[in-house]
């Protein structure tokens, strides 16, 4: 049974909070969900190694693994520039979820969580939740352009590539030649 207090917390309905039409949290919040036809453990194992992620994420310049919980992210920004941060895994739930947070000197402060829930014959429901501080000030303008462009669409596309790689062993491309494929990946 759902307790009275839990019901009261939900206010109006049972939908995920990030789909609210009215909520305006101080930090920008987005969540995207995809179902992948693989076990939660396989998906967790892939995600647990940040070195794997550059292959499925767009705009990544480099992901440098520092130790088991820390990695250095460099992300492409307009005009040939890059932004970066150190990412620290703050909570590790093997086979179930990974939570991370950016370090103190981050160009764009961000935190996030990826969850893997077994869904029987359909595989695993994967939800990525990302919170970030929309950068302000003059220095933040080009960063804002990158991060406020369509972070939700970006995340959705990254999850689709993750799904393609895990389900099919490759990332779909419509390129006809290696040259076209390289141009797509720039």
């Amino acid at each position: 049974m759902t307790s009275e207090s839990d019901l009261a917390k939900r206010l109006h309905d049972d939908a995920p909070p990030e789909t609210s039409k009215t909520a305006s949290p101080a930090r920008a919040l987005l969540a995207e969900t995809v179902t992948i036809n693989r076990t939660a453990q396989e998906l967790y194992d892939f995600w647990r190694d940040p070195a794997n992620l550059a292959g499925v994420m767009e705009n990544i310049d480099a992901i440098e693994v520092i130790d088991r919980d820390r990695s250095r992210w460099t992300v492409k920004a307009p005009a040939g520039r890059t932004v970066g941060w150190e990412s620290l895994i703050t909570q590790d739930e093997p086979g179930r979820a990974i939570t991370w947070q950016s370090g103190p000197d981050a160009d764009v402060a961000n935190s996030g969580r990826i969850e893997f829930k077994e869904a029987g014959a359909r595989g695993t429901v994967v939800t990525a939740t990302i919170a970030y501080d929309p950068p302000g000030g003059t220095i933040g303008q080009f960063i804002a352009k990158l991060f406020q462009r369509e972070p939700r669409i970006q995340t959705r596309r990254d999850l689709r590539r993750f799904k393609q790689l895990m389900e099919t062993g490759e990332i779909a491309t419509a390129a006809r030649t290696r040259k076209q494929l390289e141009e797509e990946q720039v």
């Binding site: 179902t35 036809n37 359909r122 595989g123 596309r157 990254d158 689709r160 590539r161 799904k163 393609q164 389900e167 099919t168 990332i171 779909a172 491309t173 419509a174």
Partner: peptide, 24 residues
């Protein structure tokens, strides 16, 4: 792709992965 949920149900034209991510 032959490996997603829809291909598993032989709903091939509903394949999740045949279309590149950005075009979806």
């Amino acid at each position: 792709c032959g490996s997603c949920y829809h291909c598993g149900k032989h709903q091939y034209s509903a394949c999740d992965n045949g279309n590149p991510a950005d075009n979806q």
